[in-house]
Amino acid sequence: MDIKPVLNVKKMSEMTYKVPLMADLAAEGKTPEVLFWVGCAGSFDDRYKKVTIAMVKILNKVGIDFAVLGTEESCTGDPAKRAGREDLFQMQAIGNIELLNAYNIKKIVTACPHCFNILKNEYKELGGDYDVIHHSTFLQQLIDAGKVKMTEGGEFKGKKITYHDSCYLGRANDIYEAPRKVLEQLDADLVEMKRCRTKGLCCGAGGAQMFKDAEKGKKEINVERIEDALETGANVVAAACPFCMTMMTDGVKSKEREHDVKVFDLAEIVADAEGLS
């Protein structure tokens, strides 16, 4: 597999962002403190690549010793497992675990709740035991440690923001407060939808629904959900999941509200308030 070299290009803001590759570090005999698991959406989805970049900028700014797998990374197998293909999931999992264990990875951070859930809960039984944290928790920890202050203003200052709970963070893993604490750090007006936290409504993409059309019904789930968000009067819908991001963005389009309602990931909001965009 051809591995691309570390990108190291000068930037106007004098900060040069680096993305160390795991293979390179291993060749030097180094093990990073944390592996940033980018995920398929973070690698290929044009919209979500921006979130990946925001994460890398934050990691650079706070000076965390991290690496990514680059082209060695592979789908965790989540959509296959949820669609019933346990065999395909396990093939993927075993391959990933062999790689992660060979690199002696101990801690993984990821922006995708589906990757997060499966790496944290379902790899263990197959021999992959890691300390896995979602980027919402990771960002909250950086704020708590005073490493991220979000004092650079940015475009979200003073805006009305509503947070959409991802099922695989919230109900699946009881993470409700971390994303909210990150948003509270902004000087913004955080408003809740009528269905939130444990009662949050799914965006419609979980359980491999992202990869097929919905069954016959009277409405699309993401439209039902975006109505909750619009009802709050918020101009920014904060998401913490690549699938939620797609579904909510499509929901905004279906309501023809692209001009005044935008969907952003937590990492993008933090990067912006850190003056990293």
Partner: peptide
């Protein structure tokens, strides 16, 4: 898979 880093 790693092409995203080109725009960093």
């Amino acid at each position: 898979r790693f092409n995203w880093a080109e725009n960093l």
